[in-house]
């Protein structure tokens, strides 16, 4: 009872501060992206601010972006999905492997398998009530193992025949813009609409925000949760498919640590890692930020590209501390 009273007092007293801080947190990544982009444009001029370079950044962002959309839903729903990096690799391998049997198989096989593994994640988490962290950790191992198994322990790198239609997914472009960029854009728009305008999106946020309340309100908890992980698996699969099409091959070693980048992008974008609240636009800003910084570090030349990971880590800590500060009263 006392805890409740305290929460109320704090809640009211800090209403304004909280609103300001919340806005800052949500828009922070976007502001930093814009600032970094502007500063880089001034410093490096055409080397950075050319259409080619900027499109390059977008293309590099598109694979992570697609994965991060799925991750955003999972994290808002109070979970985590560590398997996406392995799923991306598995998908790439299966796409290249399947391309021997035609483009339809090259698309259907990886998406089907990744969706299925996502479903296994979802069922173990939603039905058997295992911790998302440990379940997706297991599927991280499993999917990577499967990718290696399919590719003869990574010794076989399947090539996609340049005649295959599926190649267009990675290398084609519409109006001068590469298809992966367009598909990533589509994923973000669809993600935004679902999160903000569909019942499903609200249900995800409600479950992540207060699962008990959501249950009492009659939401189908298990189904929504399972759907989150299936979606995340499918999107990771799509990203892997695009990577394979882009590089005309499927390698089992790609995507290691991608899950961490995706989580970092999502959290930097203002989504609460504890669930219940998040923003697709923020995730987009987070993904772009990581890639812009990477690009800038490459431009500087004297800096090693590994600084990007350090920057991500520092960003993560700062963002999480801010989030902690913002949601402090909830834990009382």
């Amino acid at each position: 009872m006392t805890a409740m009273a305290t929460a109320g007092d704090v809640g009211r007293a800090s209403g304004r501060r909280e609103r300001v801080a919340a806005r800052l947190q949500q828009g922070g990544a976007l502001v930093v992206v814009v600032v970094v982009t502007l500063v880089a444009s001034l410093l490096f001029g055409g080397r950075f601010a050319s259409v080619d370079n900027l499109l390059g950044i977008l293309e590099a962002s598109s694979f992570l972006g697609i994965v991060a959309v799925g991750m955003t839903f999972v994290i808002i729903g109070g979970g985590i999905d560590l398997s996406v990096g392995s799923l991306l690799a598995l998908s790439a391998v299966l796409a290249a492997f399947g391309s021997q049997f035609g483009s339809v198989v090259a698309v259907a096989l990886p998406l089907g398998v990744c969706g299925l593994i996502g479903l296994v994640n979802g069922l173990l988490i939603a039905r058997a009530r295992l911790a998302p962290f440990i379940v997706t950790l297991a599927t991280l191992l499993f999917a990577r193992g499967l990718a290696f198994a399919v590719s003869d322990e990574g010794n076989t790198i399947f090539r996609i025949d340049p005649d295959q239609a599926v190649i267009a997914l990675g290398q084609g472009s519409i109006a001068g813009i590469r298809i992966p960029i367009l598909l990533a854009g589509l994923a973000f728009v669809a993600g935004w609409v679902v999160l903000n305008r569909a019942r499903y999106g609200t249900a995800v946020a409600a479950i992540g925000g207060n699962e008990e309340a959501a249950r009492l309100m009659g939401l189908p908890i298990a189904r929504v949760k399972a759907a989150m992980y299936v979606t995340s698996g499918l999107l990771a699969g799509l990203a892997g498919l695009l990577v394979a099409a882009r590089s005309s091959s499927g390698q089992s070693t790609i995507g290691v640590g991608l899950e961490l980048q995706a989580i970092a992008a999502v959290v930097i974008g203002g989504t609460l890692l504890t669930g219940g609240f998040g923003s697709i636009a923020g995730t987009l800003a987070g993904v772009l930020l990581l890639n812009v910084i990477n690009n800038v570090i490459n431009q500087v030349g004297t800096l090693s590209s590994y600084f990007q990971q350090v920057v991500s880590g520092v960003f993560l800590i700062v963002v999480v501390l801010v989030q902690r500060y913002l949601t402090r009263e909830q834990r009382l």
């Binding site: 019942r199 609200t202 249900a203 946020a205 925000g209 207060n210 609240f277």
Partner: peptide, 14 residues
């Protein structure tokens, strides 16, 4: 209720 969702969404959730 779900504190992070809007008043309207809480009222009409589901």
């Amino acid at each position: 209720l779900v504190p992070l969702l809007s008043v309207a969404r809480n009222l009409l959730l589901g």
